[in-house]
């Protein structure tokens, strides 16, 4: 059934883009395994089967089973699963539908809408609901308490580990409603500037991604979408090592590449590999050392 999808595709290059999107999705599942002891082997098994066997890669039932397994994982983990888990379910369901109806346009529409909606809801939280994002408190907080940002903060804001640890100790205390003013460590100005810059960049890129992906139409907008999504992944996942989410966004983005967009496909694959590099090589820690 899926072969008809590719028969109707405009060219072999379109075939490659869809095929590539499916393979990158399966690689994401392999590189960042999900689920408990029961779900994980099944998901890994299907991912391996799809990667080594083209017939399985294009089999709607494989993707439907993956969607069900991943949805089961979200249900069993409720409410602890992260956003990546939900997006995987929607995306595997979209692939299953595209395969079932043998229509690559279904995958393209779903990829564009899902990416746009992810960033639209992120904007709702950041611009409107969260009380501590717009004033840069969030980034000051996360740069101090999250050890994944430690190397980056040391390199970019030039802050000693000792200072960072003292700030972390201060921020991580909890007082159960009792307020007292102990010896407050001063937050370095460089850290504040870095938090403000991170806030502005994230507000801009999230809003730009939401608008460009949800706005219908193509033309020049297509290149803007690819450029923004790739920029987002290159910058964000160098600092926040949430690689599974980054790989999934790239898999969805590459599905949008048309027949003539070979360079964009190469760029998506390159950034996919770059995120793997970010994960395996602690570049910020190495520089700070």
């Amino acid at each position: 059934m899926f072969s008809r999808l590719f028969d109707t595709a405009r060219s072999a290059a379109s075939f490659t883009a869809i095929d590539l999107a499916l393979r990158l999705t399966l690689l994401d599942l392999l590189l960042r395994p999900v689920g408990n002891w029961l779900i994980r082997p099944l998901v890994l098994g299907l991912a391996v089967a799809g990667l080594i066997n083209v017939a399985w890669l294009r089999q709607p039932l494989v993707w439907l089973v993956l969607a069900v397994l991943l949805a089961l994982r979200v249900y069993l983990d409720w409410p602890l699963a992260d956003n990546h888990a939900y997006l995987l379910v929607y995306w595997c369901l979209a692939v299953a539908l595209a395969c079932c109806y043998a229509d690559r346009q279904i995958l393209i529409s779903n990829a564009r809408l899902l990416i746009g909606l992810v960033f639209a809801f992120a904007c709702v939280w950041k611009f409107a609901v969260s009380g501590d994002y717009m004033n840069a408190s969030f980034f000051k907080f996360i740069f101090i308490v999250d050890p994944r940002f430690e190397g980056f903060v040391q390199v970019v804001a030039n802050i000693d580990l000792e200072v960072l640890e003292r700030l972390r100790e201060h921020v991580e205390q909890h007082r159960d409603g009792e307020f007292s003013v102990p010896d407050l460590p001063e937050i370095p100005a460089a850290l504040t500037y870095l938090a403000v810059a991170a806030t502005i960049w994230n507000l801009f890129i999230n809003a730009a991604l939401a608008l460009t992906f949800l706005w219908p139409g193509g033309g020049r907008l297509v290149a803007v979408r690819h450029g923004l999504l790739l920029s987002y992944c290159v910058v964000t996942y160098a600092i926040a090592t949430v690689d599974g989410f980054g790989w999934l966004l790239l898999a969805m983005g590459v599905a949008l590449c048309g027949a003539e967009q070979r360079r964009w496909r190469v760029a998506y694959v390159s950034v996919f590999v770059l995120i793997l590099f970010y994960r395996e090589v602690p570049w910020a820690q190495l520089l700070s050392a």
């Binding site: 888990a85 992120a122 969260s130 009380g131």
Partner: peptide, 8 residues
């Protein structure tokens, strides 16, 4: 699943 991670 509301995409509010890294927002608060």
């Amino acid at each position: 699943g509301g995409f509010g991670m890294f927002a608060s």
